[in-house]
Structure formats: C-alpha cells, structure tokens
Computed example of a mutant assay.
Amino acid sequence: MRSSKTWSRSTGAGSGANLPSAVNAALLNHDLTLADLYVRYTSPQATELTTAELIEWDRAYYAAHRRSDPAVAGPAGRHAVSMRRKMG
C-alpha cells in the first residue's frame, strides 16, 4: 500500500492510522484482492492525483467492483465514515 505520508495526503487524514480499516472495508465490500489495491495505489497515476482527483478515481473504481452482498461492518472511525461520504 501507499506510505502513510501519501495515504494521509490523499485521504486528508492526519496519519496513516486508519489505513488498516480502509483496506479491510475495501476487501470486504468489493470484489478486490490486496494485490489489486497494492497495484492501484502504487501506480504512477495514483501518486500524481490530487485529493479531489483521487476521490473521483476511487468512486468510479469501487462502484465498478462493489459486491452484491457487502459485509456489515462494526463501528467505524470518524475518518472512515467521512471518507466514505465523500466517495458517495
């Protein structure tokens, strides 16, 4: 995955502490593997996007890979909920 510094820039988080929660949510709720996420977020395109561009890029990507039976998650941190709302 991306470094905490890059992840923080892209998500607006103060640290990369919410990265494990975001990865879990992506894997549980989308037809994706950890390798898929690694390739995506270490690609040259991902590292050059602004925060707004990354949100739009992610919105389309995750919509295309959404499971028809997403997992039900427990309580989420404020950041995870905020990011999900921005993504739609």
Rank of each mutant, 00 (worst) to 15 (best):
K5L: 11
L34V: 10
S10A: 08
S43K: 07
A64V: 04
A46K: 07
D58I: 02
S8R: 10
P75Q: 13
H65L: 04
V23F: 06
S68T: 14
H30V: 01
M83R: 15
G16P: 06
A52S: 14
W57V: 02
A60E: 13
H79M: 07
V23E: 02
N24M: 10
Y41K: 01
R85V: 12
T33D: 08
D36P: 05
T50K: 09
G12F: 06
A46N: 09
T33A: 03
Y38T: 05
P44K: 14
T6S: 10
A13N: 09
M83L: 15
W7E: 00
L28P: 00
A71G: 02
A26D: 01
W57C: 01
N18L: 06
E53G: 14
L37H: 07
Y62L: 14
T51Q: 14
L28K: 14
S21F: 08
D58S: 06
M87S: 07
T47P: 00
A80N: 06
D58W: 04
A13H: 12
H65W: 05
G74S: 13
L54S: 13
A46D: 00
A52N: 08
Y38M: 02
S82T: 09
E53S: 05
R2V: 11
L32R: 03
A26P: 04
A63G: 12
A26K: 08
S21G: 10
D58L: 03
D36K: 05
R66C: 03
A71N: 05
S82N: 12
M83V: 14
R67G: 01
S4R: 05
R85Y: 07
L27T: 04
P44F: 09
A17R: 15
H30K: 05
G88I: 04
A25L: 08
Y41C: 00
R2I: 08
R66P: 02
Y62G: 01
S15V: 05
S8K: 11
A52P: 01
R78G: 13
